[in-house]
């Protein structure tokens, strides 16, 4: 039996450098102006999965993402880097899902692939919860190894992983199947491969294809690997009750804009006199010195 690897990835708004132009007048973030990117930790996860794939003859690597249609872009990104195929889990019924409902939906999709090993990033930069990975593992009733930094050993049935903890590291070993959440300190993902870029540059989902010119459709008929799989709620046999807002135990009671209580701050320039005055004030009040 050849090894089946699944990588879970998320397309996220790039919240790392939210500039002023991304802020709306009410103080919230205008998501639409932020670039949508491959969640950084998930790229580390993809790299680790590719390493496993290269060590196991005949292994297949499937990328699954949940999101709107444009999230298929990150599946293409994964194909350019060595993934074999991908599925976009997309359905309006998923909208509003919290981590519990999201992990339920994803676990149904993962189960369909019957993987031996699942990789995901520790957390997504738009929520930072780090909850979905462990929750999927629980739903699939398999062990989890979180904060994975490096593969120490792999022999098809057993894997040894170095984990990055708060104040050190730990090496653990388990038999497959297992879910591994990969830490940002793990090896960065390889770049796109020129050949794969050529091969998959016209990859698209069925729905995307329907909007494209007939010549692309013909291309997909000739090369079925170009078609990115698309699954909805029914395809993964998910219970609608457990999805979306209704299936989410956490509710947002309210959102407050932050009102900064302006302190009476003393304003200084970088001139010598100002700095000296501030330093002496701080020293006189025993804050420093």
């Amino acid at each position: 039996m050849s090894l089946k690897i699944v990588v879970l990835a998320k397309q996220v708004p790039d919240t790392r450098n939210v500039g002023k132009d991304a802020m709306k007048e009410d103080g919230t973030v205008n998501r639409s102006v932020l670039p949508a990117i491959f969640n950084p930790d998930d790229l580390n996860a993809l790299e680790m999965a590719l390493q496993i794939k290269s060590q196991s003859e005949g292994a297949t690597l499937t990328v699954i993402t949940m999101g709107p249609m444009r999230a298929a872009d990150i599946i293409k990104e994964a194909l350019f880097r060595g993934a074999d195929n991908g599925f976009l889990l997309t359905d309006s019924k998923f909208a509003g899902s919290d981590t519990l409902a999201t992990s339920y939906a994803l676990s149904k999709a993962v189960a369909k692939c019957e993987p031996d090993i699942i990789f995901c990033g520790v957390q997504a930069i738009d929520g930072d919860t780090a909850q979905v990975g462990p929750q999927i593992a629980e739903k699939l009733n398999i062990p989890q190894i979180t904060y994975a930094e490096e593969i120490i050993n792999f022999d098809n049935n057993t894997i040894q992983i170095k984990r990055r903890l708060e104040h050190g590291t730990e090496i653990v070993e388990t038999k497959l199947p297992v879910l591994i959440s990969v830490h940002s300190s793990a090896k960065p993902c390889r770049s796109r491969h020129a050949k794969l870029l050529m091969r998959f540059k016209h990859a698209a989902t069925k729905s995307q294809l329907a909007t494209l010119k007939p010549e692309f459709q013909a291309l997909h008929t000739q090369n079925p690997q170009l078609t990115i799989g698309e699954w909805n709620v029914n395809d993964v046999q998910a219970d609608v009750e457990r999805l979306g807002l209704g299936g989410s135990p956490t509710k947002v009671k309210k959102i407050d804009s932050v009102v900064l209580t302006q302190k009476e701050s003393k304003k200084f320039t970088s001139c010598d006199g100002d700095i000296e005055q501030m330093v002496t004030e701080l020293m006189e009040s025993k804050v420093i010195g």
């Binding site: 103080g27 998501r31 009671k253 804009s257």
Partner: peptide, 20 residues
């Protein structure tokens, strides 16, 4: 009331779990 800053910007979300 589980209170935390939310998504990227200047907002604070109050989260509740009424039923679980």
């Amino acid at each position: 009331y589980q209170i935390r800053p939310a998504f990227g910007g200047n907002i604070i979300a109050t989260i509740i779990n009424p039923q679980t």
